[in-house]
Design a protein around this nucleic acid. Structure first.
Lengths: 191, 191
DNA sequence: GTCTATAAGATGATAGAC
DNA sequence: GTCTATCATCTTATAGAC
């Protein structure tokens, strides 16, 4: 039964879900295998070690996220502030599906997993910060975002607040506090 | 060799450290036993199940944290803004010792551990928010903090940002971004 | 209180048949 | 590619000696 490409994609999909819900130490090859409908040995064929599997998921996640951010950025119908709102909504959707940001989860599991996973998480946060900084600059042009004293620092703070609030929403199984944090962040950007 | 009180305290101390560094699924009774210098069966005498041990650590953590916050609050030599700065410094110290906030870590491990641990984390975040809200009000009196449109929401955002930034600092093994987030938060409170 | 001994199950990983 | 079979190790937890 050669599903080849489909099998690998399913393994990545399911692993990402488990990773966002339970973290590196919270799922096993068997958990993934059961949900995909294969045997755990098959996963080792695609990903020899657990570290390989998790790094592959991290790369896929960053790539998908980058695509989404590029699409938001390219949408000329949105003001810069609305782009930040859409950015925040990604985190909201994550929490709404009972998950944490993958890289937030990887950051919390820094000790067990490979250094490569940590590095991906770190670079991911840097990507988000840089994207927000760009949008802040555009917002100064289109007038939707006020002039910020330290745009780099403000962008970092928004990323940190969203990561923290998503974690809290996941824990409480309640989005209301995340919504408040998002509202506070957007209000802080308005002219 | 009856160390009694001392043994239980050591178990809690070591467990807290492991919990903040590796999370619920990242440490075992044997890890704790090895560091305390006892056998894992001894831990079961004090804490029958792992869930009991973790809940006990969470209670101790919340209690210790509450004491620290009460001390800061009672210090009349500090302005309200300086009290917020000391509050933020607790997170900085946590990251400086290569740890995450215990409740931030418990929040990320929501699936494996007991519901009670999740609840403690949730209540902990509520405690921090309420404390900050009080200090914000005091800051309006002593003039060290500006009038905030939504103090409750602002307090929540500060908690979320500190939790997120501590996680990022832990992952990157670098405090500089946490320092930036703290500076940004304090600047946002100044009159 | 703390130990030894041990159970019963899960884990990441490999070898080799098909 | 996917399977069965198996390994060595680790996990939480218990029973009972001292």
């Amino acid at each position: 039964m050669p599903s080849s490409k489909a099998t690998e994609a399913q393994i990545l999909e399911i692993t990402q879900e488990l990773l966002q819900r339970r973290g590196y130490d919270g799922f096993s090859y068997r958990d993934v295998a059961d949900r995909v409908g294969i045997r755990s040995a098959t996963i080792h064929y695609y990903f020899p070690a657990k570290a390989d599997l998790v790094v592959a998921v991290a790369e896929r996640y960053r790539s998908d996220f980058a695509t989404t951010l590029a699409e938001i950025l390219a949408d000329d119908s949105l003001s810069a502030l609305e782009k930040v709102a859409q950015f925040a909504d990604i985190f909201r959707q994550t929490a709404a599906t009972n998950r944490v940001c993958l890289c937030g989860m990887l950051a919390s599991g820094s000790k067990s997993q490979s250094d490569k996973a940590n590095q991906h998480a770190q670079e991911f946060f840097g990507d988000l910060q840089a994207w927000l900084e760009d949008v802040f600059a555009a917002g100064r042009q289109d007038g939707s975002i006020r002039a910020l004293a330290e745009p780099r620092r403000a962008a970092l703070s928004v990323v940190a607040a969203l990561e923290g609030a998503t974690l809290m929403a996941y824990n409480a199984r309640d989005l209301s506090q995340l919504d408040e944090v998002i509202a506070e962040a957007l209000d802080g950007l308005r002219p």
